[in-house]
């Protein structure tokens, strides 16, 4: 369990992390989501004691990380796969980490096997690919067999195979009852792996809820209908208090009415339906919308309006605590 209370970090006149209060619950994968520069890495560095909070506190299993008797047995972290001395072999890198916490030498061989680096154990890590470096970093985090694992953007820059490997690894680790705290700037990644979400933007907590809740609260419920008589159905939906927009392949996308009611409307008026299905805005859209106001640097595609403004025109999500 990781608990942050009013965690704040100021760099000069820039507030990188602003009064974060959250709890990372045990036995779950908690996704820590935010655009680049939102303060995710700074928060993680404060959890590890690498950065000192300007105000507030954060504890791991009820204690400051720096006060834990055997830190590697409590929490393993991978912040940056490049944070190794490239001149040292993978084996010696892991050995020097293991020794700080009295972890037996045999465990080094085990974690190398686990991440599939046994064959290159004797090689200097400066020749490693990004994926191999990531595996080495994860091996280091697993050395102490910790109950909590913290990964900062673990899939960044990996090829599809590497992404899949990390995703499966996180699920397997969570399946063993471990707490996983993983950051990402990609909602789609979290949608596939996380149970719970912490969303931050400009250092502030925007959402703290389960993934299901996040979807429910942030995506507009829409219904996709295909019928040979779209004009008539659109009129009926409008009468009943809903609205429609034309969708792809001649379909209608209806908003403001539940699926059942639209089906009943069609039946009662003798309109033939070819398709009737609930549709949701993707989580990615919901996330973009939520953080649109808090993105550090907006990029504009040529000829496009501000992404945040464009999407708020389209729909108005319910506010999130």
């Amino acid at each position: 369990m990781i608990e942050a209370r009013g965690l704040t970090k100021r760099f000069g006149d820039k507030l990188a992390v602003d009064q974060l209060t959250f709890t990372v619950e045990p036995g779950k994968i908690t996704g820590f989501l935010g655009p680049n520069g939102a303060g995710k890495t700074t928060t993680m560095r404060m959890i590890l004691g690498l950065d000192r909070p300007t105000r507030g506190s954060v504890t791991v299993h009820g204690k400051e990380f720096t006060k834990l008797a055997y830190p590697m047995h409590e929490m393993g972290a991978l912040l940056d796969a490049k944070a190794v001395h490239g001149g040292r072999s993978a084996y010696n890198h892991l050995l020097c980490l293991a020794e700080t916490n009295g972890i037996p030498r045999t465990r080094v061989g085990e974690v190398l096997e686990l991440v599939g680096l046994t064959e290159v154990a004797g090689k200097r890590s400066k020749g490693f690919s990004l994926g191999m470096g990531q595996r080495l970093g994860i091996a280091g985090a697993l050395l102490g067999d910790p109950g909590i694992l913290m990964f900062d953007e673990p899939v960044n820059g990996l090829d599809p195979e590497g992404i899949l490997w990390i995703r499966n690894l996180m699920k397997a680790l969570a399946g063993e009852g471990r707490t996983i705290f993983v950051s990402s700037h990609l909602m789609s990644e979290m949608e596939n792996t996380a149970d719970h979400l912490l969303v931050i933007g400009r250092g502030r907590l925007i959402a703290d809820c389960s993934v299901a809740e996040f979807i429910e609260r942030n995506s507009v419920q829409a219904v996709r209908v295909r019928t040979p008589k779209p004009e008539i159905l659109a009129g009926l939906i409008a009468e009943a208090g809903g609205s429609t927009v034309p969708g792809a392949a001649g379909a209608l996308v209806a908003q403001g009415l539940p699926v059942d009611q639209i089906g009943d409307l069609a039946f009662e008026n003798g309109i033939r339906l070819h398709e009737l299905a609930p549709a949701q805005a993707s989580l990615e859209e919901a996330f973009m919308e939520l953080t649109a106001d808090s993105v550090e640097f907006h990029a504009h595609a040529p000829g496009q309006r501000d992404a945040g403004a464009a999407s708020t025109d389209r729909m108005h999500p319910a506010g999130v605590a």
């Binding site: 560095r45 590890l48 004691g49 834990l68 830190p71 190794v84 001395h85 700080t100 970093g137 280091g140």
Partner: peptide, 18 residues
């Protein structure tokens, strides 16, 4: 200084934060 130039210091201090 090699701990800082390679970034190893962050790994070092996250296994022994004292």
């Amino acid at each position: 200084t090699s701990e800082y130039s390679t970034g190893m210091i962050r790994t070092t201090l996250s296994v022994q934060p004292r």
